[in-house]
Computed example of a mutant assay.
Amino acid sequence: MTAPGDAPLITLTWTDHVTGRQGHLVVDRLVRGVSSGGLRMREGCTVEEVAGLARGMTMKEALHYDPEGRYIPLGGAKGGIDCDPRDPEAYGVLVRYLRAVRPYVESVWATGEDLGLSQDVVDRAMAEAGLVSSIQAVYPLLDDEAAARRRLVDAFAVEVDGIGLDELAGGCGVAESVLAALDREGVPYAGTRVAVQGLGTMGGATARFLARAGLTVVAVADVKGTIADPRGLDVDALLAARDAYGTVDRGALRPTDRELDADAWLSTDAEVLVPAAVSYAIDTDNQAGIRARWIVEAANMPVLPEAEQLLAARGVTVLPDVVVNSGTNAWWWWTLFGDIGPDPDEAFTHIRRSMRTLIDRTLARAEADGSTPREAAHAIVADRLPVIAERYGRYR
Results as ranks from 00 to 15, higher is better:
298 A>P: 09
359 I>R: 07
386 P>W: 07
287 Q>W: 05
289 G>T: 02
286 N>F: 02
297 E>I: 01
329 N>P: 08
293 R>Q: 10
358 L>A: 01
389 A>K: 13
255 P>L: 08
267 S>G: 15
268 T>C: 13
336 L>N: 06
298 A>W: 05
363 L>G: 02
385 L>I: 14
355 M>T: 05
290 I>R: 00
359 I>E: 09
333 W>N: 12
359 I>G: 04
298 A>C: 11
252 A>I: 08
307 A>E: 06
301 M>R: 13
366 A>I: 01
344 P>A: 00
339 D>C: 03
352 R>A: 11
370 G>D: 05
345 D>C: 06
271 E>D: 10
275 P>A: 03
370 G>V: 03
278 V>K: 13
327 G>I: 06
301 M>D: 12
341 G>C: 04
339 D>W: 02
268 T>F: 04
252 A>F: 00
334 W>Y: 15
377 A>L: 04
380 I>T: 12
371 S>H: 10
256 T>L: 08
300 N>W: 11
261 D>K: 02
340 I>W: 05
275 P>Q: 01
284 T>R: 15
278 V>Y: 12
272 V>F: 00
386 P>G: 11
382 A>C: 12
384 R>M: 10
309 Q>P: 00
339 D>H: 09
262 A>S: 13
262 A>P: 03
357 T>C: 11
314 R>I: 08
388 I>Y: 07
355 M>V: 09
338 G>Y: 12
283 D>Y: 01
282 I>S: 04
352 R>D: 14
295 I>L: 08
259 E>V: 14
252 A>C: 03
335 T>N: 05
380 I>S: 09
383 D>N: 09
260 L>S: 09
296 V>I: 12
355 M>E: 10
362 T>D: 08
281 A>M: 10
347 A>R: 03
331 W>S: 15
375 E>C: 05
311 L>E: 06
264 A>T: 06
261 D>E: 13
251 G>A: 05
350 H>K: 11
335 T>Y: 01
365 R>P: 01
339 D>Y: 00
314 R>V: 11
369 D>S: 15
260 L>D: 11
252 A>L: 03
321 D>A: 14
346 E>N: 05
345 D>R: 14
254 R>F: 02
360 D>P: 00
286 N>E: 07
371 S>L: 08
378 H>V: 13
299 A>I: 02
335 T>L: 08
274 V>H: 09
330 A>N: 14
382 A>F: 02
326 S>C: 14
323 V>L: 14
276 A>I: 10
273 L>S: 07
346 E>C: 09
388 I>M: 15
320 P>L: 07
304 L>M: 14
279 S>N: 12
389 A>I: 07
388 I>S: 00
296 V>P: 14
329 N>D: 13
353 R>D: 15
343 D>R: 03
303 V>F: 07
277 A>C: 11
282 I>V: 14
370 G>H: 05
272 V>H: 11
314 R>H: 06
301 M>V: 13
346 E>H: 03
358 L>G: 00
258 R>E: 14
273 L>F: 03
286 N>A: 02
316 V>H: 00
269 D>A: 14
297 E>L: 02
381 V>G: 07
306 E>R: 11
352 R>G: 05
306 E>Y: 01
277 A>Y: 10
323 V>I: 04
378 H>S: 11
314 R>Q: 01
313 A>Q: 14
348 F>I: 07
347 A>G: 04
389 A>Q: 15
339 D>Q: 06
364 A>N: 13
